[in-house]
Write a protein that binds this DNA or RNA. Structure first.
Lengths: 165, 165
DNA sequence: CCTTAACTTCACAAATTTCTGAAAGAAGCG
DNA sequence: CGCTTCTTTCAGAAATTTGTGAAGTTAAGG
């Protein structure tokens, strides 16, 4: 008989990893449940799980999953797919998609930029405080540009490392 | 008569910037009070403030300042200085020091690395889940190296831009 | 030494966040 | 169409985080 795709894994070891990694994401500022859902998806073999599967592994209600997934989809760390011929939804982490999201904080960086620019104006570009804020602004603008290039290089590096012919 | 160093600034405009920027730091995951203290320091003309000054600008108790500053010092976003001949302490943001801290998350990245490595072992390097986690690990290792280089280039760029002869 | 000015710690109150159960909403399937 | 299966929403309970006042600690200055 064909085994289900997650067979042969020690569920306890998996869970231990999921919780450990999630805890670090939380420390870095992510919502707890979102972090746990994300870690569970990352560790899953197929890279997809249904709401019910997540609920069981994490021992939480469907409502909690729903909220976490909504957030994760918003920040493009997971995508949602409808299983054809079923009202069951599957949530997926694309291995190449998710850390793109980490650096594609374009919208966020742009909002920071706006705030900092207004700060420079309020403080006066010629004052010491204004100059300090202006330098911070310049740093974030620099960062925004460099992160794009960095991700391009990473994709190349990854292809060489993982897709070696 | 010589004006004190912060004169001529519209305190309300300054406060508005401080709170706006702090709010964005909070959204990015920083503790609220730490964010407010940091923003206030960044916007100050001298780049330093005493506990009392911070307490007054932010309308909070000394205890709150104490906790926030402890955290900020721990992550190297501000440094503490003793005023000679006084038990008053000054907190300072070095304009070049603080965003170094942003990228010098070495310790953090290393801890993430450890967790991910254990994850690869638990899941099995040959399983799809294990491979996905391994790729994530590779990404963070790549990131760690690149961030160092990026910061070097930034320092050069900044010197050209801000210290033009 | 004693006083006093500052900073820190701690127990607790307040505010916020997080999760749940229940009910309502969609969408396949007969 | 109505039944059934899943997902979402929402009000509120529970847990966590955050900030305060008061007491404790440290060190300068007499």
């Amino acid at each position: 008989m064909m085994e289900p795709s997650e067979a042969g894994r020690d569920p306890e070891a998996v869970s231990k990893f999921v919780e450990a990694f999630a805890a670090q994401l939380v420390e870095a500022g992510m919502q707890r449940m979102a972090a746990r859902v994300f870690a569970a998806l990352l560790a899953s073999d197929s890279g997809t799980m249904s709401s019910a599967e997540l609920g069981e592994q994490l021992q939480v209600s469907p409502a909690a999953i729903s909220g976490a997934v909504r957030y994760l989809a918003q920040v493009h760390m997971v995508s949602r797919e409808r299983e054809p011929g079923s009202r069951r939804e599957r949530y997926r982490v694309h291995s190449d998609q998710w850390y793109e999201a980490l650096t594609n904080r374009d919208a966020i960086l742009r909002r920071w930029g706006m705030t900092l620019r207004e700060g420079v104006d309020s403080l006066g570009a010629a004052t010491p405080g204004g100059r300090r804020v202006a330098e911070t602004l310049a740093f974030f603008e620099y960062l925004e540009g460099e992160l794009g290039l960095l991700m391009e290089r990473w994709r190349e590096h990854r292809d060489r490392t993982f897709r070696t012919p």
